[in-house]
């Protein structure tokens, strides 16, 4: 672990009225597809926009009862954490998020390589 909390570059992506509680939306940040979820309770989380399985947009999927399901092959993730529900050994890359007033920002950690987890089907 590096002692400095890495610097974060923030990008404004949307305002709160674009993303109601319980909904999700995909945005493009610096050419990367990012999925934003407004969790019940108010917290906003951001994950890689493409499914770790294949290049499928997770925003095309279904968000229900705290579970995000990719339509193509039913891979499921916990909306609050990005952890794999099925299959379990897989998780979504999670972006930094901050909200200032109505504005939502997605953050890139400096020096970080790939913001995209990939899992194979085996």
């Amino acid at each position: 672990m590096s002692e400095v909390k890495e610097k974060i570059r923030w990008f404004p992506v949307l305002t709160l009225d674009d993303l109601w509680e319980g909904e999700m939306l995909d945005v493009e940040v610096e050419g990367e597809e990012v999925l934003l979820i407004h969790l019940p309770g108010g917290q906003i989380v951001a994950y890689q926009g493409m499914c770790p399985h294949q290049e499928i947009s997770l925003a095309d999927g279904e968000l229900k009862d705290g579970t995000l399901t990719c339509t193509a092959h039913r891979w499921q993730f916990e909306a609050a954490t990005g952890n794999g529900v099925n299959p379990k050994n897989c998780r979504l890359y999670r972006y930094e998020v901050k909200v200032e007033g109505e504005q939502v920002y997605v953050g890139f950690l400096d020096g970080e390589g790939r913001r995209y987890n990939r899992c194979t089907a085996k």
Binding site: Q54, D60, T71, A72
Partner: peptide, 14 residues
């Protein structure tokens, strides 16, 4: 283009 089922079930060709 990406596809799989060709029939509207998988959603890969959205």
């Amino acid at each position: 283009l990406p596809f799989e089922c060709g029939w509207g079930s998988c959603g890969m060709c959205k």
